[in-house]
Design a protein around this nucleic acid. Structure first.
Lengths: 263, 263
DNA sequence: CGGTCGATTGAACGCACTCAAACGAGGTGG
DNA sequence: CCACCTCGTTTGAGTGCGTTCAATCGACCG
């Protein structure tokens, strides 16, 4: 937490579309603060008018969810460190879903109006924000396919693939060994299954030698086989951001954007 | 088709966020053309690099779909006149899904790079485009709830409510009497059900007196009861654009944006 | 050392699926 | 104009994947 929170946003956006020093300076001028929230707390709820801030997740796991009139909960997105929490509220003034912390989380909140102005007035930042938002849209579409058109075992395998992939891209874990800080009930609510069935399917994946579990940590025995079982094609996640050689030319000369301890 | 196609975009965006005359003029400078496409034709396919155009639907119905490795098709969005077809491709360079015409459609195609510049350099247009994109995201989330957490009969009723609502908002029909130009098989692929089951559910909705059918046209007997059956709450569709009194103050003095024959 | 929450396992049920056949409307060619 | 084909809708019967209900187990915690 010693890092200035705005750096996290700048790094994230720069990964989508290279920013220049002025862009980064503009971002650094945005007023911001860090907050923490315990597991199961809500950052906003459906129909809320959002406050005057916009935020990204700095650590922990959170998810977007909605509850039906019959009381069933559907989790419609899982957020990890670096993800935008409420980009919608930059431009829409009603929340259409609930945002719940899965673990203890830390969040960087920054002035919604100031950030909005930066996005609208600095094309490079705007492009980065657009890519960010559109890539989340692509994930929604893939989730619709998973939930609407894939059998249970494929759903679970696909979800594990996506989570591993995203954690790896975010620099938080290896896709072949990562922790899923979700209960099986929450996984069930992601996938439109019951906790009981998720449990059985996970056990069968273990029995088939695709993964092994230690508590909530997952070891992928064969990434190749798991992607086949999950019909996983990461194209919808966008290009993997690891083009360091290419990106290096565009990075500002300051060390501002580099993750600490990295080259 | 006598209308200049760029007017359709300007009208659509103005409904999201009021534009001024300069904004409209900038939009009118964007190079564009009208194309038509027969039913079942594809405008783009997954993994395609999009061409140098961006388009909106002028007439007809289209949908976004993906096909799983096991050959099941999931329809992830339904587009009607006025909707953006490929806003994603303004900023992402790979299609993550297929875009298929459900009926014969007409499309306005305009220069992607020019339109992108207008969005990035004219904040009012940018805000409108952002709202547009974010509202589609809200629809994705609601669809995830429908497909993942609602029983078949509720899914069908919810889908009919959304379609009626959106058609009415687009000025294309009344929400209590509209045409669904989709086969039951396509509806099934929207809802993650089988055509056979969709058929049975539709029949039961008719038997229960919620709707009646004449061919593919739907008459809603009781909108109230249908929304209850479908657990339908239109909050996710955003504010209904029919604030004519309010919007009038913001409209440019030119008649450019007014739908012909109105007011 | 209970108490709580999540994971696990068993057994029976049911919603939606699959397979299959019949029906009806629209279109085409003889 | 009718015969015929095609495609979508409709209906019936049997099946199965995932659910529901319920009980046990295990781990963490106060």
């Amino acid at each position: 937490m010693t890092e200035h929170p705005m750096k996290a946003i700048a790094r994230r956006l720069d990964a989508r579309n290279p920013l220049d020093d002025d862009d980064v300076a503009a971002l650094n001028n945005v007023r911001c603060a860090i907050t923490t929230h315990p597991p199961e707390s809500f950052l906003f709820r459906e129909a809320d008018r959002p406050g005057d801030y916009c935020s990204i997740l700095l650590s922990g796991l959170a998810f977007r969810q909605k509850v039906t009139a019959h009381g069933k909960r559907q989790i419609v997105a899982v957020l990890m460190a670096g993800d935008f929490i409420d980009a919608q509220h930059l431009f829409l003034d009603r929340a259409d879903h609930n945002l719940e912390a899965a673990t203890a989380i830390t969040v960087a909140e920054f002035s919604r109006h100031q950030f909005r102005d930066v996005i609208l007035n600095r094309p490079r930042v705007g492009v980065a924000a657009w890519k960010e938002a559109l890539e989340e849209g692509a994930i929604f579409r893939e989730w619709l396919v998973t939930v609407g058109a894939r059998p249970g075992p494929v759903r679970v395998a696909h979800f594990l693939c996506e989570l591993g992939c995203r954690l790896e891209r975010a620099g938080l874990a290896s896709r072949e060994d990562f922790i899923v800080p979700l209960t099986q009930e929450q996984i069930a609510d992601v996938l439109g299954l019951t906790p009981v069935h998720v449990n059985r399917v996970l056990k069968s994946l273990v029995a088939d030698g695709l993964i092994s579990q230690r508590g909530r940590s997952i070891q992928v025995s064969s990434w190749e086989r798991l992607t086949v079982a999950g019909e996983f094609n990461p194209i919808y996640l966008g290009p993997s951001a690891r083009h360091d050689a290419h990106r290096a030319q565009h990075l500002p000369t300051s060390t501002l954007l580099r993750p600490r301890g990295q080259m």
